[in-house]
Design a protein around this nucleic acid. Structure first.
Length: 509
RNA sequence: GGGGAUAUCGUCUAGAGGUUAGGACGAGGGAUUUUCAGUCCUUAAGCCGGGGUUCGAUUCCCCGUAUCCCUACCA
């Protein structure tokens, strides 16, 4: 039988990175085995604080971003649709009737209040909490009475009262649970919507799912799901419970630890392949290959359930950054330029592109003034970026109107403008650069080396003041590439401004 | 309180009944000297504890301990 795996997110907002990792595992397994990857929306919780309709689009956007498109899902449909649980209510209804009829499920009329009190009392007495099954053993008369009254009810699973449920987890082997310790799980809520356990079992069967891959946090409630499958008369799929992703304090990764929503990572400028590679490695490894960087085809080729880890992994933001930097450096400059432009626009460093109905002239001017400039600059910083949004700080000085001393780092100025030869240096540079026949990094360097000799100082004592004078800072790409990218006009303006203002300040009494 | 899972450098992990316990991130040092980054080289850093089984256990078993997860009409 061919592998069919599903990713079953709830629309509670932008998906958690942990959920996406599970989706990646699903997808990888499906691709590896020539199977089918299905996504199904589990929108059965209608409470306003947990039902976030926009979340649906965040989920879709995340899958698209990662490039792990489902073969069957709510966007494109498929032979087992609909892929949205709220649209499958009649199916659950029909199935629950069956269970009630054959006695493996029952209606429970207990109120929320009674349940709360019961739980409270259990806790106070140090007893295990759980439904006391009062409605399970209602007399037929009582039951008929409640029905006649129209008392609201939920439907619960009649869990076997003794014996054990053995779950075979593909990662952890057989796990035995005592049935008497399992609760009579609610299957249908009083609003008529199914709970996870019921909808999951019905749908996984209907969609012919072969492997349920889901977080370790589901492991302890797994026997209840198994019993739902059993009650329904269905063979349960195989179970795989990958370990949780945790924070530095080893607790389930949450907002407290930093960003967890996938949308945040997309916005910051993490590349899809870096995110995918990183997430996969958080709980899976290629064995003794001793490698960290894998292309998607390499991952598909190597992926296996057996390679999955069984203990929780701390989400290491540092390692993600390193990996993202690796992928940025390995990218075509054109790609990085394209990805960086939005950050520059957002930061106000370059204006928005002219609209489609702008004149050709406007478009040309925009291209020559901004695009061509950005295309020159961004590749100079490519090897310095770990996350794309860093481009703003990295290249800011290229775009900002540096107006000495405004925009200059005082520490940089203090460090390098004190050199005795600053004045002749700037003057010689202005003259030499002005006269340069061609504005290339090589020509600039040759001219600067000549000046260094005339001045009789060390090259470094020329380089550094020059960098500060033209960029306002001490760090950046090589000086000559920087000057080249800056262009003749900007370079000379900055040199002249520095010369004029700095020495005016110095020489005044 | 009950149940389940897990335990190798700070972190992600590899590994095998006998290994100098390997790699990566991060950290330290060095090289490249035109800064930063990058790149290259390099150093430190680990088998939770106790019993067994065994000639031998970090590896297999048991117990303990610790941690996490679940214990909802949330998923």
């Amino acid at each position: 039988m061919s592998v069919r795996v599903r990713f079953a997110p709830s629309p509670t907002g932008s998906p958690h990175v942990g959920n996406l990792r599970t989706a990646i595992y699903d997808w990888l397994l499906a691709r590896k085995e020539g199977g089918t990857f299905i996504a199904r929306l589990e929108d059965t919780d209608r409470s306003p604080e947990r039902y976030v309709p926009e979340g649906i689009y965040d989920i879709e956007a995340s899958l698209r971003f990662l490039g792990i498109l489902p073969d069957e899902w709510w966007v494109a449909g498929g032979p087992h649709g609909p892929y949205v649980q709220s649209q499958r209510l009649p199916l659950y209804q029909a199935e629950i009737e069956r269970l009630i009829t054959d006695g493996s499920a029952y209606r429970c009329y207990c109120t929320k209040e009674r349940l709360d009190e019961m739980r409270k009392a259990q806790q106070e007495r140090g007893l295990p909490t759980g439904y006391d099954r009062r409605c399970r053993f209602l007399s037929p008369e009582d039951r008929a009475h409640r029905e006649a009254d129209g008392t609201p009810f939920v439907v619960r699973l009649a869990m076997p009262l003794d014996g054990v449920t053995v779950l075979h987890d593909e990662l952890r082997g057989d796990i035995t649970y005592e049935n008497r310790l399992q609760d009579d799980q609610v299957l249908i809520k009083s609003d008529g919507f199914p709970t996870y356990f019921f909808a999951c079992a019905v749908d996984d069967h209907a969609m012919e799912i072969t492997h349920i891959i889901r977080g370790d946090d589901w492991l302890s409630s797994a026997p209840k799901l198994v019993q739902v499958f059993r009650a329904l008369g269905y063979t349960a799929p195989k179970f795989v419970h990958p370990p949780l992703i945790v924070g530095p304090d080893k607790k389930k990764l949450s907002k407290r630890h930093g960003a967890t929503q996938f949308s945040w990572f997309m916005e910051q400028g993490y590349l899809p392949e870096a995110l995918l590679n990183f997430l996969v490695l958080l709980g899976w490894s290629a064995g003794d290959e001793n490698r960290e960087l894998f292309t998607v085809p390499e991952l598909i080729e190597r992926f296996s359930i057996a390679g999955m880890s069984d203990s929780p992994a701390v989400f290491d933001y540092d390692k993600l950054n390193w990996m993202n930097g690796q992928y940025i450096r390995a990218s075509e400059p054109g790609r990085i330029i394209g990805l960086c432009l939005p950050y520059l626009r957002k930061a106000g460093l370059i204006p928005d592109a002219p609209s489609a109905d702008a004149t050709d002239d406007e478009k040309r001017i925009y291209r020559e003034t901004w695009l061509d400039y950005a295309r020159r600059i961004i590749p100079l910083e490519q090897e310095r970026m770990k996350v794309l949004n860093e481009v703003v700080d990295l290249v800011g000085f290229f775009f900002e109107d540096l107006d000495f001393p405004t925009g200059y780092d005082p520490k940089a100025v203090a460090k390098w403008f004190g050199v005795a030869h600053l004045k002749p240096l700037l003057e010689k540079e202005i003259a030499a650069f002005e006269a340069l026949p061609e504005w290339t990094a090589e020509a600039l360097e040759a001219a600067t080396r000549a000046i260094t000799e005339e001045l009789g100082v060390k090259f470094a004592e020329v380089i550094h003041p020059t960098r500060v004078a033209t960029t306002g800072r001490t760090v950046g790409p090589g000086v000559f590439e920087t000057l080249w990218a800056l262009g003749k006009e900007r370079t000379l303006k900055r040199l002249r401004d520095c010369h004029r203002v700095y020495f005016q300040q110095i020489e005044l009494p």
